[in-house]
């Protein structure tokens, strides 16, 4: 299937932007820390999609290698972020980010 022949690059730009903005909306709207984290992952994925689209349309494989590294870094970030979240939940007994506004609990 050759997407490059029939789908203009602008479609991918708009799709990726829409996904990014939905992710941003999620971070702004939700209070639960885990859902905010998931929306950040959504934003990272929107960027990944855009990089792969550009890499395909320009013919440069650097974009795909960069996506590979973004996935690696995202995995590491999720691991540490969720560990921090669990620690916060143990201390504060809540995962509500509006309540966690004190520097020292």
């Amino acid at each position: 299937m050759e997407a490059i022949k029939s789908i203009p690059l602008n479609y991918y730009i708009i799709l990726s932007t829409a996904l990014f903005c939905i992710g941003a909306l999620g971070v702004m709207t939700r209070r639960n820390a885990i859902i905010m984290f998931m929306c950040i992952e959504l934003m990272l994925n929107a960027v990944n999609l855009l990089m792969v689209a550009f890499s395909r349309y320009i013919g440069d494989s650097n974009g795909q290698v960069f996506v590979f590294f973004i996935m690696a870094v995202a995995a590491a970030e999720v691991a540490v972020g969720l560990a921090i979240l669990i620690m916060i939940y143990r201390n504060a007994n809540t995962s509500d980010t509006d309540v966690l506004n004190k520097l020292k609990w």
Partner: peptide, 21 residues
């Protein structure tokens, strides 16, 4: 999104995306 990667001929990234994410 993995389906989009396949459409863009990025098979390795599609598989790694599913496995990792």
């Amino acid at each position: 999104i993995a389906g989009h990667y396949l459409l863009l001929s990025a098979q390795f990234l599609a598989a790694v995306h599913i496995i990792v994410y």
